[in-house]
């Protein structure tokens, strides 16, 4: 009787420990976690494992930061200026490579037990000399990534549970095979003379799929993307976006194409430009043959 009780108790404890281990291994840093406060990087640094960041990490224009497969950065919720947005961030003015793989993606996340969007500020590129992102997951930030005044290549990544998933201005962006979901804005951009191609991405279940804030002029080509269930708007124009924009060859969640009521443009405010969605895909891009090379 006693043995049976002990056996059941032992089994229950093991089960409980196992579950706890499983849960904690998913979302919290391992015991060997490295602690980083405010830090300036002006040389080559190669990071791996778990790192807890409680400050601003700046990679200067001379610096270079490489994140190896499986690296996890945990940003501590801290609000020095009390603006409601976390202040921990990774700012890159030099070179940055996220070398994640399908099996070992890189994770940038909140260190909070109950994470929320904007727990930390952003992964921010400003005049960066090189930006190469592969298999990176960025979540619970104000912006999953912000890119300004530089070129950037983003592939096989995921931006989720942020205010802005991917945000850029005056930048040349190549983004493909990436998922943006459960953000307030999947993509938010101000073109300002920048250009790029955003293709074969899944942009779904954000409040706004793409927010074209201002000075966008069709130099950034959005094609062969799946836009689904971005509610209330798949595409939204900012207050001063007066030029019309084209989003050709995308899947809009319906074979009929982009529904007018899911677009905030001239339809709502006569001073705004108009959104056009020519040649809509009749199925999600994964189900039909679509070229990876740029369309003429």
């Amino acid at each position: 009787m006693l043995n049976s009780y002990m056996h059941r108790r032992s089994f229950s404890l093991n089960l409980l420990c196992g579950l706890l281990l499983l849960l904690t291994s998913c979302v919290t840093p391992s015991p060997q976690v490295r602690q980083v406060g405010d830090l300036v990087i002006s040389d080559l640094q190669i990071w791996s494992g778990d790192i807890r960041i409680s400050g601003v990490v700046q990679v200067t224009s001379e610096g270079r930061l490489i994140l190896q497969p499986g690296t996890r950065l945990f940003f501590v919720r801290m609000d020095r200026d009390e603006d409601g947005i976390g202040d921990a961030e990774l700012l890159v003015e030099g070179e940055f490579e996220a070398q994640g793989t399908a099996d070992q993606p890189i994770l940038l996340t909140s260190a909070a037990a109950h994470p929320q969007p904007a727990d930390w500020k952003f992964l921010y590129f400003d005049y960066a000399r090189k930006v190469k992102i592969n298999y990176l997951i960025s979540e619970y930030a104000y912006s999953g990534v912000q890119i300004h005044f530089c070129r950037a290549q983003i592939r096989h990544s995921e931006f989720r549970y942020n205010i802005d998933g991917v945000r850029f201005s005056t930048a040349n962006i190549q983004m493909t095979d990436t998922s943006l979901h459960h953000n307030r804005h999947g993509i938010r951009f101000e073109e300002r003379g920048g250009q790029g191609r955003i293709h074969h991405n899944r942009i779904y279940q954000n409040e706004i799929g793409v927010f074209a804030v201002v000075r966008c002029a069709d130099k950034t080509l959005f094609e062969y993307n799946d836009f689904e269930q971005n509610i209330p708007y798949q595409i939204k124009m900012g207050l001063k976006q007066q030029r019309s924009l084209n989003f050709p060859r995308n899947w809009w969640g319906d074979a009929a194409g982009l529904a007018q009521e899911t677009v905030f443009d001239q339809f709502y405010d006569p001073v705004l430009g108009q959104v056009f969605a020519p040649e809509p895909l009749t199925l999600p891009f994964g189900l039909i043959s679509t070229p990876k090379e740029s369309s003429p």
């Binding site: 603006d83 409601g84 947005i85 101000e190």
Partner: peptide, 12 residues
Amino acid sequence: FALPALACVGKT
């Protein structure tokens, strides 16, 4: 290039 119309980065 440096003055966004109403979308200042980080300004609340």
